[in-house]
Amino acid sequence: MTTTRARRPASALVLVLATSTLLVAGTAPAGAEPGCLDESPPTVIGLPSGNGCDDSTPPDTLLTPSTAPNGAGMVPTATMSFSFTAAVSDADAGPFGFECAFATPAAPSPAWEACTSPVALPAQADAPAGSYGFRVRAVDLGDRSRTPDTNPLLPPQVADTPDEDPTPASLTWGQDTKAPFVFITRSAYDEATPTQPVITTPSVPLRLDSNEPGSTFECRDGERAVACTGGRWSLADPRPGRHVFTARTVDGGGNVSEWADPVEFFVPSDLRRTRGWTKVRGDGYVDGDALRATRRGARLVLPRTAVGELRLIAASGQRLGSVRVRVGRRDWHVVDLSGPRSPLVQHVVIDRYSGMRTGRIVIESLSARPVVVDAVVARPNRFPAGHQRTGADG
């Protein structure tokens, strides 16, 4: 007896596959499935059996520049490089790629191009903030090459959302690679010592300028940092003694200038009241006050110091008398305070060419006529070169 097996016709196999496809189509849309990481369609015996799902969570992009722009949006370098990575909020393993676009003033709207991290840009010309821009976006390369609607027997049911980062990482900047210059102008003048004028005002007027508008300034008074601003500016309440003032400037790109050639000045030492002297006040006096004596022999004695130049700052007037001044046990020097009325006159008692002497400075009234003395300038007769940056002395 011969047994024969009936063969299922090919048309029946197609019918089975079609039926399987229709069963899949009758379920909920594949795009609604949570946690979809792969847009590959389902298959039966290697043939598509229905629409796939859509991976609607694109990758994020993380960007790191070689130099971050400062608060003004500027960098001090002509070259920039960028490193970037892809980040996902689900378990998608990729593979991921990147597309970059570099905008310049000549090409403000560049097209996306495939790129790999890191990207090093060629040197660029100096330009204002916002002149250059770099954008990069991560791409899900596996999903970008597929579409969920692959079954030709079914109508499209699943929308294919973009497979690249919809919010690319970006950075804009300008650049300034040239260091600025700084200039200091001192308005005080002293005919006797023009390179180190004596300052009798409450503040020291100066002017700070940079060759690049918008620059900021850093200043030093000796070894002490002081806050300062560009243009006309004054150093308030300077302490007595020698001052060496310098400044540097920082431009919008963060470039720092060299320290400027310093300017020097000297602030007198105010006299303190002692027996036989009374304090008087007035706007024209150094620090707003002076000392007055009305009897012969009233003395002021200052601490021991080295003196190369000595000046007495005192009031003058028709009815004022005289004082005498000496350093240590050296000769007395008489100073006549009579003359046109003025709250402040500088009397050079010992000039800078008379040599050094050391000792206490003594000021003594010579008659019963009143005298008003205010401050003294006692400093060495050495005037260091302008580039030497030291603290105040005296």
Rank of each mutant, 00 (worst) to 15 (best):
L121D: 13
L141R: 08
V75E: 01
P122W: 12
T64Y: 06
L62H: 02
Q175M: 10
A169I: 01
A159N: 14
R137D: 08
P59T: 10
P76E: 01
D54C: 12
M80P: 00
S66L: 00
D165Y: 05
D55C: 06
L47W: 10
A91P: 02
F84Q: 07
D60M: 01
D126L: 02
T67E: 08
A120H: 12
L154T: 00
C53Q: 09
S56C: 07
F82R: 06
P122Q: 13
V139Q: 03
S131M: 03
P122G: 15
G94S: 15
T150W: 00
L63K: 00
R146G: 07
A129T: 01
G46P: 13
N151S: 05
A169D: 10
G97L: 05
F102R: 15
S131E: 00
S109C: 09
S66A: 01
T147W: 02
A123K: 06
C115H: 13
L121G: 15
A78F: 00
V139S: 04
V119C: 14
T172L: 02
P48Y: 04
L63A: 05
L153Q: 06
D165H: 07
D126N: 11
V88L: 09
R144H: 09
W173G: 03
F96N: 07
T57Y: 12
P59E: 12
C53L: 09
D143R: 08
Q124W: 05
F98E: 11
W173T: 01
N51D: 00
E164H: 15
Y132D: 04
P148S: 08
D60S: 08
P76V: 01
T116M: 09
A106P: 15
P59V: 09
L62T: 12
S89G: 13
T77V: 08
D165T: 05
S117E: 14
G133A: 07
G97E: 01
P122E: 13
E99K: 14
G94L: 14
S49H: 11
A114I: 01
